[in-house]
């Protein structure tokens, strides 16, 4: 499930200069695929500024997102893997940023449920944080 939506939307970078850039970079594939408009990226960043980094779900992993009406065309998830972690507000270190675009309240729930399982699995997350290539990541997500 999650692999289908993330596939072809994975990027790997050594480092980014700020958490804002991390979100922009992570969301880029969604923008290119027409899942979201620019406004949605701004909304995700604004959301972190307004509400704090609660989207850093576990140490090292962030799931930026905003409301569907902020510019979602269709549901999709993309992934940015950083080799060097970036600091989110409140000194939260993040190495994996998955941008979530949800078209409505329900269609993405299966993917999120799968993602939850992954996030709760320390061993697989360790692999995730250390992964270097797209195929490695796809292997973990499978």
């Amino acid at each position: 499930m999650i692999i289908e939506t993330v596939k072809n939307r994975i990027r790997i970078k050594d480092k980014v200069s700020s958490w804002e850039e991390a979100i922009r970079e992570a969301a880029q594939p969604l923008l290119e695929d027409g899942c979201i408009h620019e406004s949605y990226i701004d909304a995700m960043i604004e959301n972190v500024i307004q509400n704090g980094p609660y989207m850093v779900l576990i140490p090292g992993f962030a799931l930026p997102h905003a409301r569907p009406e902020m510019g979602v065309e269709k549901t999709g998830i993309s992934c940015l893997k950083l080799n060097e972690s970036v600091l989110f507000p409140e000194n939260m270190e993040v190495k994996v940023v998955m941008a979530l675009a949800a078209g409505d309240a329900n269609t993405h729930i299966d993917a999120l449920t799968e993602l939850t399982d992954l996030l709760m699995d320390d061993d697989r997350m360790e692999e995730f944080f250390n992964s270097q290539t797209e195929s490695e990541i796809l292997g973990i997500l499978k």
Binding site: N47, Y54, L57, L63, R67, L100, A102, L112, T113, M120
Partner: peptide
């Protein structure tokens, strides 16, 4: 509940 009601809250609900 989260701001958008889409991501974090959905995952929390799953857990």
């Amino acid at each position: 509940a989260c701001d958008a009601g889409m991501g974090s809250s959905a995952m929390g609900a799953t857990v």
